[in-house]
Structure formats: C-alpha cells, structure tokens
C-alpha cells in the first residue's frame, strides 16, 4: 500500500518534471488572476463579452477564427449573449454565399450557423497584406503557445523600445515576451482604444485580460462543463474507492494474511 502511494507520487513528479523541461526556456510572464483556473474555474461572462468586442474591433481585421460560429456566442459556458444579440451580431457581417440558381455567388447578412467571417480570402492574401507574416488563426491559439494564456496576456503588453544595439527591420517590432523578441505584429492596444458598453475602463491591461479570456474560451469552449463534470467524476471515484477499500478489507479478513 505504502509502495503504491510512493509510486503514484513518483510518477506524478516525473510527469510534471517532464513538462517543466519542455517549458524551461520561457521568460517570466506577467501574472493575473484567471477566473477559469482551478477545480471550479468558470469564465467571467463580462470579460468574455468585452473580449469579443476587442477581438471584433481590433484583432479580427487581421486574425481569423475559423472554427467559431456566431451561434457559439449564445451557447452556455461562453459569452452567453442572448440569442437575439447573437443574431444581431451575425447579421452585422456580410457573408459570401452561393452559388444561387443562376450560378452566381452573392452576399447576405450573417446567420447564427455561419462561421466567423475571415479577414482575408486566403493565406497568400493575408501574407501580402502583412509584410509576409501570416497572422495566425486564433481559434486554438492559446493552446498552441507554450505559455498559454499567460503568454498571450504578456505579449499584448510586452511592447518596448528595443535595447541599445538591437536593430529592427521595417515592419518588425520589439516585444520582450516574443520568442527571439522580434514580432511582426505592431502594438495594437492603447488605453481607451475601445469603448466598453458596461463602463469598464478600457486600459491596455484590461483589454489584454478580456481578449485573452475570450481566446481561452474560443480554444476550450467546453471548459466549464469539463470542470463541473471532472469534480463530480472525481468525487464519485473517491467514494467508490473508499467503499471498495472496505469491501476488500472484509473479503481479505477471511484468510490469515495482510493485504
């Protein structure tokens, strides 16, 4: 029994050790309190709605989110706009559809079932418009970067003047959290850039936090139900384990041996 615990602890230690080695080269990221971390972590609805606003007004001019649909905005565990609001949001975008009966493509207002519209027709168009750099799709961006939300949150606030001796090419910017410190995206956020409906003051820090929360939800839309189910599953397993443990003790007490 004791050995078993030792093994469990050892293996967990080993795995986390492995994980740390993968992330050994990262710099110290800015920290903030994320509402979605922890056993009962949930998204902050307000932050998600504000984050969506930042995405639409700022990020979406270059970054696509091809795996999201407008209906997701009204789904449980997300920003939870009302269905009417989500419909209005969808309708505010022009979506290319077709071909119609005449064989022509046409545009129409968006519907809930439409995917988020793409800022560029294709990768080449995106690169041509951004000095050769492709603005990555942001649907799973948080999961596709080593530092996750902390990295994105820090990066948005990490723009600085380059240190003496570092020369930057045209269209390249200095960011202290970027791998290699050189980034092709210019600093996008400045205080008061967007006007939040709920009266929250739109500081760079606030906007970074909101949009990062939004990106976390976009990458893990079922995070809330995962946490809820996980808690139930683990409590259930623990109770069952205790019951089975006592059954085992009872059964093994029939013979003269220790277990």
């Amino acid at each position: 029994m004791k050995n078993f615990f030792k093994a469990l602890i050892l293996s967990i230690f080993f795995i986390s050790f492995q994980y740390n080695t993968n992330a050994a080269e990262k710099v110290e990221y800015l920290k903030t309190d994320w509402s979605f971390k922890g056993l009962f972590g949930k998204f902050d609805r307000g932050a998600l709605q504000r984050g969506y606003q930042v995405y639409t007004e700022v990020c979406s001019s270059c970054h696509s989110m091809k795996y999201l649909s407008y209906r997701n905005l009204a789904e449980k565990g997300g920003p939870e706009f009302t269905e009417a609001q989500a419909k209005a949001i969808a309708a505010s975008f022009e979506v290319k559809d077709g071909p119609n009966a005449d064989g022509d493509m046409f545009t129409r207002p968006g519907k809930l079932s439409d995917k988020f519209i793409m800022p560029y027709e294709n990768v080449q168009a995106a690169q041509a418009a951004n000095g050769g750099a492709y603005p990555p799709d942001m649907s799973v961006l948080v999961k596709a970067r080593g530092g996750g939300v902390d990295y994105i949150y820090s990066l948005l606030q990490g723009y600085e003047d380059p240190p003496v001796g570092v020369t930057l090419d045209d269209g390249v910017y200095y960011n202290k959290y970027m791998y290699g410190n050189k980034i092709k995206m210019a600093n996008q956020l400045s205080d008061g850039l967007v006007e939040y409906n709920d009266g929250t003051s739109a500081t760079v820090e606030q906007m970074s936090k909101d949009v990062t929360t939004f990106l976390m939800w976009a990458a893990e839309p079922h995070l809330e139900s995962r946490h809820r189910m996980g808690f139930k599953a683990i409590v259930y397993l623990i109770i069952l384990t205790v019951l089975v443990y006592f059954s085992m003790k009872r059964i093994w007490s029939r013979i003269e041996t220790k277990i």
Binding site: M229, T241, Y245
Partner: peptide, 18 residues
C-alpha cells in the same frame, strides 16, 4: 484488490483528463 488499485489509478487519470 485489482479493482481497488484500478480505482486509484482512475482518480489520477480523471485528474489529467478534466
């Protein structure tokens, strides 16, 4: 006994999954 050990293992498993 195997069942008991399996349940302990599943708790660790569940922690990773969820």
């Amino acid at each position: 006994k195997d069942g008991f050990a399996l349940l302990m293992f599943m708790i660790v498993f569940a922690f990773f999954v969820f």
